[in-house]
Design a protein around this nucleic acid. Structure first.
Lengths: 236, 236
DNA sequence: TTGCGGAAAATGTGATCACAAATTAGAGGC
DNA sequence: GCCTCTAATTTGTGATCACATTTTCCGCAA
C-alpha cells in the first residue's frame, strides 16, 4: 500500500507539491527522456508507452504525449504505423549517414566555438576528460556516455549557435542509444586521445587543429564502436 | 444559427466525416502547417494560437498541440517563455548560420541522390523548373516557394537519406517564412539559372557538377534575397 | 489626449474520459 | 504439443474540462 496518489480527481488539485513555472511538467519529462536516451538507459527497440512513462515519472499522460511528439520530430523516437513508439534500431546505412553528418557539422561547430566563444574553459574540459578516463577505468558505461556528451557540448555550446547546434543534438539523440549497446563489446581504448588534442588546439587557438581533432575523435570513436553488429535486438 | 457543431459532446461522434487511419487528424494538421510555413503563408512573428489553428482546421486542440510541439522541436515554431507560440523572426546571425548549414548539407545530399538514386527524373525536374520560371513571371510568390521546394526535395529525396534529409527539412522550415517576406523586395532574376546547371549535371552523372550547382544556387538565392533587412516585423 | 486600473476574454497546461484498434492471454480443439 | 479462435487487456487518439496566467479591452481620471 503505497501513497495511492491518483494525481487529481477531475478538479485541479492546485499544486500537489510543486510545479513552479509554466510547462514545468513537460520540461521535466523532456529532460528525463533526453537524458535517458543520451546515456543509453533506453535501448534501441525498447517500446515506449504513454501511460508507462507517465506513471514512471509521476505525471499524467499529457506532458508525455507532447514530449514524445517532440522527440519523434527529432527522430530520437520512432512512431510505428500502429502508433506504437519505440527507440529506433540502428542500421548500417543509418550509421554511415550519422557518421557523415557528424563529420560535416561538428568540426565546423567546434571551430565556430573557438572563433566566437570566449568562454571556452580549457581547464574545465581537462577535468571532464580526466573523469572520462576514470569512467573507462571503472567500466561505468552510463557515466562515460554522459561525460563524453558533456565534453563535446561544452565546446559546441560555446559557439552560441542556434541552427547547427540543434541539428547536432538531434544526431546525438539518434546514435547515443546504439553506442551504449556496443559499449564493452569492443575495446574502449583509443590509440590516441583526441580529447587531449582538442584541448591543446583550444589552448593554442588553432581552429584547424580543433577541427582535425574533433573529426578524428568522431571517426575513431564511431569506427571502433560501430560496425560491430547492427542486428542488436535487445528486446524489452 | 449555423450548424452548431460543437464537434462532439462528451461521447465520441464516431467519424463525423472521415478520419480514416491512425493519427489521421495529426497528420492532416502537420501537413497543413508545414505547407503553410514552406510556402510563406505564415509570416515571421505571426502568433500561432492553439484554439485558433484548431478551429481553422476544423479539429480539436489536441492534434494541434502535438503538431506544435513537433514543429517547435524542429525550430520551425518558437515557444516563448509565456507559452505563446509564434513563427520565429529572422536575425542576421541566424541567417548566416542557415546559409552555412545549407552549404554543408545540401550539396552532399544532392551528390548522394546522384550516386545512389536511380529514380532521378531529369525530365520532371525540367518541367518543374519551367513552372518556376512561369511563377517568377507572374509574380506568384506562393507558387514559387512551393515549386522551388519541390525542385530541391525531388532531388534530395532520391538519396533515400534518413538522417541528412530530415536535418535539411528542418532548415527549410526555418528560413522559408523569412524568404517569403523578402520576395518581391529584390529582383528575382538570377544571373545564372543554377537549376538548369543542376539538371545538366544530373544528366551527365557529374556529382561534382551537381554539388557546385546546388552550392551556387543556395549561395546566390540567399545572397540576393537575404541580407535586405532583418527587422521585418509584419505583425499579425 | 494620455496614462492607469480593472474587468472580461483568450490562451496554454495538465488531467480525465470515451473509443477504436491492436496486442496479449487463455481456452478449446486437433 | 501446437495451432486457432475468442475474450480481456493495453495502448494511442481525439475531445473536453478546470484552472492559472496572460493579454486585451474599456472606462475613468489627470
Amino acid at each position: 500500500m503505497e501513497t495511492d496518489k491518483p494525481a487529481g480527481k477531475a478538479t485541479r488539485e492546485t499544486s500537489p507539491a510543486i510545479l513552479l513555472k509554466r510547462g514545468g511538467m513537460r520540461a521535466h519529462v523532456d529532460q528525463a527522456v533526453r537524458s535517458a536516451l543520451l546515456t543509453g538507459r533506453f535501448i534501441p527497440g525498447k517500446a515506449v508507452t504513454l501511460r508507462g512513462l507517465a506513471q514512471e515519472l509521476g505525471v499524467s499522460p499529457m506532458p508525455v504525449r507532447e514530449v514524445i511528439q517532440r522527440l519523434a520530430a527529432e527522430h530520437a523516437l520512432e512512431v510505428l504505423p500502429n502508433g506504437r513508439v519505440q527507440v529506433p534500431r540502428m542500421t548500417a546505412s543509418r550509421f554511415d549517414e550519422v557518421l557523415k553528418a557528424r563529420l560535416l557539422l561538428e568540426p565546423e561547430l567546434a571551430a565556430m566555438a573557438l572563433e566566437t566563444g570566449a568562454r571556452l574553459d580549457a581547464r574545465q574540459l581537462e577535468k571532464i576528460d580526466l573523469e572520462i578516463d576514470a569512467s573507462l577505468g571503472t567500466g561505468d558505461a552510463e557515466a562515460y556516455m554522459a561525460l563524453n556528451h558533456d565534453f563535446h557540448f561544452r565546446i559546441y555550446e560555446a559557439s552560441r549557435s542556434t541552427i547547427l547546434l540543434p541539428l547536432v543534438e538531434s544526431l546525438w539523440l539518434q546514435f547515443a542509444p546504439f553506442m551504449r549497446t556496443v559499449y564493452g563489446r569492443v575495446g574502449t581504448a583509443h590509440l590516441v586521445d583526441w580529447h587531449k588534442e582538442a584541448i591543446k588546439a583550444i589552448r593554442g587557438g588553432s581552429a584547424a587543429g580543433l577541427r582535425a581533432a574533433m573529426a578524428s575523435d568522431i571517426r575513431e570513436g564511431m569506427g571502433l564502436l560501430g560496425r560491430s553488429s547492427f542486428a542488436v535486438v535487445e528486446d524489452e
